[in-house]
Design a protein around this nucleic acid. Structure first.
Length: 156
DNA sequence: GCCAACGTTGGC
DNA sequence: GCCAACGTTGGC
């Protein structure tokens, strides 16, 4: 007998200047590379195909959740760790990569962005990781938080 | 293994 | 642009 699999929800941040939602929409799919924080990495590695993802623009005015995405491939070696540049990781080898990247698929722009001040005000969103660990760029979101945010996005 | 110095993220 | 939070580095 088939058991319906548990679908987890996540939030990933991207600086508007760094990788914009417009670019993500054009790309359709993208490897979520460049994460260089171990807790964020742990979350990336926990992502399963089909998991729901909130795409959040940080450093915006204001910052906001702007789109929905879905995990389309589970995390594998992040190729940017081998490239000279900001993301280079000297400890990494092909057999023992240090950093990992899942593939995310663009789903849709939210009907309207759900802005950080609104999230802060919302009684049921007060315990979001987004508000507790402001610098964490990949974080879990509860099913209830996910539902509230998508519902807010559908109302003016 | 502690911790000070330093660098980065991200809200404002 | 400032600065608080916090992760990382490196001396000891």
């Amino acid at each position: 007998m088939l058991i319906k699999e548990f679908v987890a929800c996540w939030l990933v941040k991207s600086g508007v200047e760094e990788y914009s939602v417009e670019q993500f929409k054009r790309d359709g799919k993208t490897l979520w590379v460049g994460v260089r924080n171990h807790l964020a990495k742990k979350h990336l590695k926990e992502m399963k195909i089909g998991d729901e993802v909130l795409f959040y623009h940080s450093q915006g005015s204001p910052s906001a959740v702007v789109a929905l995405a879905r995990v389309s491939k589970e995390a594998d070696s992040d190729p940017t760790q081998f490239e000279k540049g900001d993301y280079f990781e000297k400890r990494a080898t092909d057999k023992a990569p240090v950093w990992f990247a899942p593939e995310l698929q663009f789903v849709k722009l939210l009907p309207r962005p759900v802005e950080l001040p609104e999230i802060k005000k919302h009684e049921k969103l007060k315990s979001m990781v987004l508000l507790k660990a402001s610098r964490l760029s990949v974080q879990p979101v509860s099913a209830e938080e996910f539902k509230i945010i998508t519902r807010l996005a559908n109302h003016d």
